[in-house]
Simulated scan of single mutants.
Amino acid sequence: MIRNILRSTFSSIFCILVALGITAGPLLAQTYTFGVVPQFEARKLARIWEPIIDEIEKRTGYDFKIVGSPRIPEFETSFMNGEFDFAYMNPYHSIIAAQTQGYQPLLRDGGRELFGILVVRDDSDFQSVEDLEGHTIAFPAPNALGASLLIRSDLANQRNVDFSPMYVSTHGSAYLNVILNQAAAAGGVMGTFRSQPIEISEQLRVLYKTTRVPPHPIAAHPRVPEDVQKKVTQAFLDLWKTGYGRELLERVPIREVMEASLDDYSELQEMGLDEFFVK
């Protein structure tokens, strides 16, 4: 009988606390979705981001669900539909995300710039991008910024090179297609190129580098309360200040965490990339 009375009393107190918006820590913790652009295959992305998100959960008290996408086009559909509360996306994605859903960049890497690279087999005869005239070039996806958009724009508008694009889902697949002689060259970025196994990277060499732009931001959907956005922003800034945090973020790769805004990417809007963006 006493047990029933205690149970009833606890239930009543709990209902009152819920009504007042007061809960005991993680019992009713808010969960936010966190999308990640699929630069790497799913298992590698999980190894990179899960420990980072674990740290952000500890520092904010919120729960996060990492939402994967099998390919970049599916990732684009998701953020254009507003399916992510937070997302790590390429810089041009952030412009499209702002236009379609009102996403705003919160953070970015202040220690490097993003640029595309074209790689060819190390034993090939290609010495300039003009040598790729009429050849097949592998790209991870049409709208990958450094690995596709910037390269295709440069080749068409600056170098007048005609080529056949082949889209193969990931950066790693693009590099592998060159090694297997399925493509003469592949588009990528230095971050993913340097992260390749040595048996892959040693067979390739960089033929061309594109214009440099600010790197990928972490952006938030406008439905996320401003105080939550600020808390998540501060959590990433604080994480980077620790040795362990820097080690985790370097795997993304992010060398230095800094606050970001849409103004950081204004130059991209003047580069005429719209004609190369596939909707």
Rank of each mutant, 00 (worst) to 15 (best):
I72M: 08
L114F: 00
I137L: 14
N160M: 09
L107N: 04
M80S: 12
A144N: 06
V119F: 10
G102K: 06
R121T: 02
F79L: 11
L132C: 03
D85E: 09
D154M: 03
D125M: 11
L145E: 09
P142C: 00
F75S: 08
G82Q: 04
M80V: 14
D125W: 04
G110C: 02
Q158H: 10
H135T: 13
D122F: 05
M89E: 08
P73K: 04
V119E: 02
R121N: 13
R112V: 13
F115M: 08
E133A: 12
E76K: 10
N90W: 12
A97E: 05
R108K: 14
E130K: 13
F126R: 02
V168T: 02
F115N: 12
G82L: 14
N81Q: 14
H135L: 12
S78M: 14
A156E: 04
F163G: 05
M80I: 08
S153I: 00
S164E: 09
V120Q: 04
G102I: 14
D122C: 03
L132H: 07
M166I: 03
F75C: 00
Q104N: 11
I151S: 06
A87P: 05
F126C: 05
P91G: 01
L106V: 11
F163R: 03
S128I: 01
S153V: 00
F163Q: 04
F84E: 06
E113D: 13
I137Q: 02
P140E: 06
P142M: 03
Y88V: 07
P140S: 08
Q99C: 01
H93R: 00
L155N: 03
N160G: 05
Y167L: 10
A98V: 02
N90A: 15
G116F: 13
V161Q: 02
E83I: 07
P142T: 11
I96V: 14
D131H: 06
G116R: 06
N143K: 05
S153Y: 01
A138I: 07
R159E: 06
P142F: 10
A97R: 06
A156Y: 05
F79Y: 15
I95W: 02
E113N: 13
I72A: 10
Q101C: 14
A141Q: 04
N160P: 00
F75E: 01
P140L: 11
Y92T: 11
G134D: 03
I137F: 10
D125C: 00
A98T: 02
G146K: 06
D162V: 15
F75L: 03
